[in-house]
């Protein structure tokens, strides 16, 4: 299978801390791949490097055969990679629907002049944006909350809005940063179901996660990070029995 995303020898240092060190892995089309590791392993840094939020010191990120390392986040989003955040980042003062509509930004074209003059050709585009966004809210089962201000929603619902917003960009690869953070067991189960549903729509998923049950249930492959280095990459059953992974998660006994 051709990989949709290839990470090659990625490095990032913060002062004296090597947050990500020589990390390489690939994500195949249609996969759900997870990155796990203890606190401070460099998971979120890795995500920020891939999505262009921060630049890497060295290494390459190849997305759909194209080098994207060093590009702006909006360029990477337009190329087909969308993301969510661990600490949800919705747009305050905007309804759930409007939040999702912003997600359509990179797939639509009306600019300042067209907007100010309210040109007739923008009406069709605007209607399409609205319809597609509503459809996604329905898909995530929060269609009835479309007109509610997004930041006043319950935590789990906010996460669903963020999912919908990311999907509105029609990504070929979706990055989910700890999608189960702050959710209870029931809600985590819901999120697992949602992620599978998203993959069934043909979207490849790369997620960073703390919650083992979620990762083991839905992932096809798992990358394990520890102190910025990749220590294992395998299918979930193999990871569960990997002595190195067990050691870093549970300790090695000589306390």
């Amino acid at each position: 299978m051709t990989p949709i995303l290839e990470v090659q020898n990625l490095n990032r240092r913060f002062g004296g801390l090597q947050a990500v060190s020589e990390v390489s892995f690939a994500v195949a089309v249609g996969q759900i791949k997870a990155v796990i590791g203890p606190n401070g392993a460099g998971k979120t840094t890795l995500f920020n490097l891939i999505s262009g939020t921060i630049p890497a010191d060295s290494g390459q990120v190849i997305f759909n055969g194209q080098e994207i390392q060093g590009k702006q986040p909006w360029q990477i989003a337009t190329a087909g990679m969308a993301r969510t955040y661990q600490n949800i980042k919705l747009f305050p003062g905007m309804t759930a629907l409007e939040n999702v509509m912003v997600g359509r930004h990179c797939r639509t074209t009306a600019g300042f002049a067209a907007g100010m003059l309210n040109l007739p050709w923008t009406w069709k585009e605007e209607r399409e944006i609205r319809e597609k966004s509503l459809e996604l809210l329905e898909l995530l089962e929060i269609g009835d909350l479309a007109q509610v201000e997004a930041t006043s929603l319950a935590f789990g619902q906010q996460r669903a809005v963020e999912f919908a917003r990311a999907l509105a960009a029609e990504p070929s690869l979706l990055l989910l940063d700890e999608p189960a953070a702050g959710l209870n067991m029931h809600e985590t189960g819901e999120v697992a179901r949602l992620i599978s549903k998203i993959r069934d729509r043909g979207v490849t998923v790369l997620l960073v996660e703390h919650d083992m049950s979620l990762v083991m249930d839905i992932s096809d492959e798992i990358v394990v990070l520890c102190f910025g280095q990749k220590i294992a990459e395998d299918v979930p059953t193999a990871i569960q029995h990997n002595p190195e992974v067990i050691r870093i998660y549970l300790g090695d006994g000589d306390v």
Binding site: T53, P73, K89, L90, F91, P92, V102, C106
Partner: peptide, 18 residues
């Protein structure tokens, strides 16, 4: 909409393609 998004969360707006 993009402007209001920038107001609310600039980096998220950027990550959404703005």
């Amino acid at each position: 909409r993009a402007l209001r998004a920038i107001h609310g969360a600039e980096d998220a707006a950027n990550a959404m393609g703005v």
